[in-house]
Amino acid sequence: MNSAVGVRDLRVARGGRDVLHGLSFDVPRGAVVGLLGPSGCGKTTLLRCLVGVQEIQGGTVTVLGAPAGTPALRRRVGYATQSPAVYADLSVGENLSYFAAVLGAPHGDVERVLDAVGLGDARGRRVATLSGGQRGRVNLAAALLGSPELLVLDEPTVGLDPVLRRELWELFRALAGQGTTLLVSSHVMDEASRTDRLLLMREGSLLADAPPDELRARTGADDLEDAFLRLIAEEDR
């Protein structure tokens, strides 16, 4: 069992409506895998299944060799939600110190993750006074605490300028180099080319599960946005 995540026939219904219709895929260890698809296609629901906070109707989700949501996984999986889940009335440092205490992260981990997301000088600032992009990075920093083996990141680069976006993708790449597995969702296609493997989602189903180069070759498209559109056209036919 060498994959970090194994999903088989995963079905989820929310509010009486099927949101995920029997997904199956694997995420190899140490890879940066992109989860792409239009907004509302079920990306967040899928990520919630991996961290064990989503009720599922069928199928299995295995994370690092154990069923998703198992207590032992709570130290080994880092999760950053799309909208920042941090305390706006606390300072950046107070937020991270609290989460570090809950995780039992080693001493000095707060400085490490602040440096990693480029917020080293914002430690004493209250989250409420930060810009949207900075809040997103505090959120990401909290997910990095305790150096989890799997990082599940929901749209971590949304609202960031191109320079910061590139820096974060370099960070993701560096983490993968140290053996961390990353599953990163996005709805921006130009980020897809930075991944090792892509999961393309549409309306609760997987359209494709392949490396970016293979997708381009298979569809004969030059860029991934085009490849995605061709895959949709193929399926609709």
Binding site: V51, G52, V53, P71, R74, R75, V77, Y79, T81, S83, P84, A85, V86, Y87, A88, F99, V102, L103, G104, A142
Partner: peptide, 13 residues
Amino acid sequence: TGGTLERLMTMPL
């Protein structure tokens, strides 16, 4: 509603 409860529920708390 702020999502911090969900974050804590994914942690060893």
